[in-house]
Nucleic acid binder design. Structure first.
Lengths: 342, 342
DNA sequence: CCGGTTACTGTAATCGGTTACAGAGATTGT
DNA sequence: ACAATCTCTGTAACCGATTACAGTAACCGG
């Protein structure tokens, strides 16, 4: 197979530099002082031999993988994923660690046993939303395996740091905007996937906005959107066919909002004149839609950065913030009815 | 630090099952026959001990990392990246390999020497576009390190498998569509980043379409777009201010097309009545833009799948297709001037 | 009954690093 | 001048797997 052609080992370096392997190791890892001339000799030999340490050997000896894992849902598309990964990768790379990434599709890892990322692979894990089921999380937790969760709070009783975004307050604000500024009363809310926590909090914000403004909640207006554009589109199309009356849609997220916009256009409804539409996330293209989408800006890249940072803290110092909640802000564009100028 | 709490080794399994470590290893890896009752005993012990092999030890012994690397440009956002990663991850995971991912931002890996992904890390590399400069590629090539490139052809003289998409033919077709169907004559082409290969071929298709239809190429119409929406937008805005006459824009990619659409709208030009706009990629949101974007569908996820497949073939059999060119097809929507109905 | 496979198992070397332990000079304090 | 300390270095055990080599027992054909 692929024989590693000319494997230069630490012993080669040591002998050519006339020192012991221990000294070379110490020089490389800066783990003990080394006299200046020796250091120079070692460095020179390393350069001329193009020596790079064998990570597997190092990992075996130190019992650390020097890598962290990112566990994601089995399909990751959308504007959402890129920025988060970007954030994670930047701080992980900065720290000299490797980043392993894997989805947890049961169908795929048919042959394998257990989770594809774990203690034997990585030093810690970033768990995205429901990429790992509760049982798997609990198991890793019992092993005292360092984890931080993003877009999810840990299961009951487990103290796992998590980083989330402010869902409820922003949802409240944006729905209240629809009510107070645009005088909307019958506002549809499109739920995300069953059990999705962001969706749960957004719904709470929605309900609170209704309540505080004296609008009775009509359960018929809470419908499935799944954070997916085509499902959201279907839901809205059905709603119109069934004669459901509504004057606004809080789409759950921007992806669903895109579907809603399409469905309304197909049905001949004007946005925002007939129906206001708002989303959540402020994905890259949202400002380029017609009409430009009013939504909530979520600091997705920042979530990635913070999560990685927390995990690294956990690894190094054994400490991390139990929960960090990143701020969100509503961004008013056109789809709610504002800035009709353009 | 993080002491691996209860590290169960192969020796524990062996002794509890009353066999030698060699036998256990052979059972695990199916590398030699093992009698049935022994197999059962081993399996039972493994289950009760929750044994999982230590990958670093295995990697050291076999001198393989059981992982492949994906090297990406230092910033990866956009609809583009998700699907590709999705494709790669699916086949890599299916094969029981791990996926390491890293960007090659010089600024970041200031401390480190060399490329963050390489022979000591991984068994092979997928190199995305210009994430690695030519010198680095040559170095890895000299080490006979397995690589495949995506969205890029290897440097002169190096036989590295690559997977690309059909750029020229589709560009030709879509530009010809503008000419023949919509009678456009002054068509702007927005280049991608300097040296970007996809951009190069798309330009060739553009030029060929002009030539075959008897239109002289006006160099003033070839402008920078960088495959970035805000740069594309600026370029178009400037062009309009400078009084450049044009009746169509081939934006280089969909991202740039989004910028073009915005710039034209801001300038009061109607699309497609005044100016036709077409893109390349068919990103997820492109069909939801107003007007819906006429573009070229690129099988991004498939690129990922094929690349991973090729790399795995290279690892297993030492063989891979020198170049695979994935087909693209033009998809006619509204921004060119067709289907004006909606 | 005997040489040659076949099926299975065990011992111990090996992969390439890290690091506990020991020790040699040089420096310092009294 | 002597002990204590500090700086630097080397030897060898160890991390947890794989696998070459050796060996035993059963089986098979003639």
């Amino acid at each position: 197979m692929t024989r590693k052609s000319s494997s230069v080992t630490i012993r080669d370096v040591a002998s050519q530099a006339n020192v012991s392997v221990a000294t070379v190791s110490r020089y490389i890892n800066q783990t003990a002082p080394v006299s200046e001339d020796v250091a120079e000799r070692i460095q020179a030999v390393m350069n001329s031999l193009r020596y790079t340490p064998h990570v597997a050997a190092r990992n075996l000896a130190t019992n650390r993988a020097n890598a962290i894992g990112l566990m994601v849902s089995f399909n990751m598309y959308g504007d959402f994923f890129g920025p988060m990964l970007n954030g994670i990768e930047s701080v992980v790379g900065e720290d000299g660690l490797s980043l392993l990434i894997s989805s947890n599709n049961l169908a795929l890892r048919g042959g394998q046993r257990g989770v594809p990322l774990g203690p034997n692979n990585t030093d810690g894990l970033i768990v995205y939303a429901d990429s790992l089921d509760e049982q798997e999380v609990r198991h890793l937790y019992e092993l005292q395996f360092p984890m931080v969760m993003v877009y999810r709070t840990p299961p009951e009783g487990l103290k796992i740091p998590c980083v989330n975004i402010e869902n409820k307050a922003a949802s409240f604000k944006i729905v209240e905007h629809l009510i107070k500024v645009h005088n909307r009363r019958r506002i549809i809310f499109l739920r995300g996937p069953e059990g999705q926590q962001d969706s749960y909090w957004r719904e709470l914000g929605y309900l609170k906005a209704l309540e505080e403004n004296g609008i009775a909640c009509d359960p018929l207006l809470i419908l499935p959107g799944e954070f997916e554009r085509h499902i959201a589109a279907m839901t809205i199309t059905d709603a119109i066919l069934n004669g459901l009356e509504f004057d606004a849609v809080f789409a759950g997220d921007d992806d669903a909002a895109v579907g809603v916009l399409g469905a309304l256009r197909d049905a001949g409804k004007r946005v925002p004149q007939d129906v206001s539409v708002v989303g959540f996330d402020d994905q890259r293209t949202s400002s380029y839609l017609t009409p430009a989408l009013t939504t909530v800006r979520a600091p997705t890249l920042e979530v990635g950065r913070v999560a990685a940072q927390q995990l690294i803290n956990l690894l190094r110092n054994g400490q991390a913030d139990c929960e960090t909640l990143l701020p969100t802000e509503i961004v008013i564009r056109e789809s709610c009815g504002c800035n009709a100028s353009r």
